[in-house]
C-alpha cells in the first residue's frame, strides 16, 4: 500500500507540474498573439470643415499606429449635418464598398450588399451596418481616429450623435435585424 501511495503521489505531482507548464505556455502564447487595443489609435488630420459640405461623401485614407492605411468615407449626414466616418469595408466579407452618387448608396462589388447614406445595410447579404471611425471636429479642422466596430456601445453612441441610425432599429442583435418599410 505505501508503495502504491508513493507512486500515485509522484505521478500526481508530475501531472500537476506538467499541466502548470503547459498552461503557462498557453497563457504566454495567448497574450503574445493578442493585437494591441484599437482604441489606442491616434487621431489624424484629414482636412478642414469646409472640405466636407452637406450631402458630401468623400473618401479619406486613415493610417493607424500600425502604419496600415484604411479607407474611410467622410459623410455630412443629410438632415443632421453631423460629420460621420464610415469604414470602407463591407460588413459582409470586407470588400471595399463604393459610393454611387446616382443611387446615393454604398454598393459592395463582391456579393451585392447595399448601404444607405446613413451606412445602414438595405440590400444583399450584409448582416449589419458599416463600422465607424471616431471623428473630432475642432477649430475648423477634421481629425479621424481608430475604428469603432458595429455592435459596441461606442458605435451606438456615435449612431445617435450623428443621426445615422436611419431606418435601422437600434438594439437588434445579429440575426434578428429588421428594417422599417421606409428603407
Amino acid at each position: 500500500m505505501p508503495e502504491t501511495g508513493r507512486r500515485s503521489f509522484v505521478l500526481g505531482v508530475l501531472g500537476a507540474v506538467g499541466t502548470l507548464i503547459a498552461l503557462g505556455y498557453a497563457f504566454v502564447a495567448e497574450r503574445f498573439m493578442l493585437p494591441p487595443p484599437e482604441s489606442a489609435s491616434t487621431l489624424q488630420k484629414v482636412g478642414t470643415s469646409q472640405d466636407f459640405q452637406p450631402g458630401d461623401v468623400k473618401l479619406v485614407v486613415y493610417t493607424g499606429d500600425g502604419g496600415f492605411p484604411d479607407g474611410v468615407y467622410m459623410v455630412r449626414v443629410p438632415g443632421s449635418s453631423a460629420l460621420a466616418a464610415y469604414d470602407e469595408h463591407c460588413a459582409h466579407l470586407q470588400c471595399p464598398v463604393q459610393w454611387v452618387a446616382g443611387t446615393q448608396t454604398f454598393d459592395c462589388p463582391c456579393h451585392g450588399s447595399v448601404y444607405s447614406i446613413q451606412g445602414t445595410n438595405i440590400a444583399g447579404p450584409a448582416p449589419h451596418p458599416l463600422n465607424y471611425h471616431t471623428v473630432v471636429e475642432q477649430n475648423g479642422e477634421v481629425y479621424v481616429g481608430g475604428i469603432v466596430p458595429w455592435g459596441t456601445p461606442q458605435w451606438q453612441a456615435l449612431a445617435v450623435k450623428w443621426g445615422t441610425t436611419g431606418a435601422w432599429v437600434p438594439g437588434a442583435v445579429p440575426g434578428t435585424i429588421r428594417f422599417s418599410s421606409k428603407a
Binding site: 459582409h92 456579393h111 451585392g112 440590400a123 444583399g124 447579404p125 450584409a126 448582416p127 445579429p174
Partner: peptide, 18 residues
C-alpha cells in the same frame, strides 16, 4: 461558394450560408 453567397438577403440568411 461565391455565387451562392450572393443569394442571401440580411443577417439570418447570410449566417445560414456562410
Amino acid at each position: 461558394f461565391y455565387q451562392i453567397l450572393k443569394i442571401a438577403h440580411g443577417s439570418l440568411e447570410d449566417h445560414l450560408l456562410v
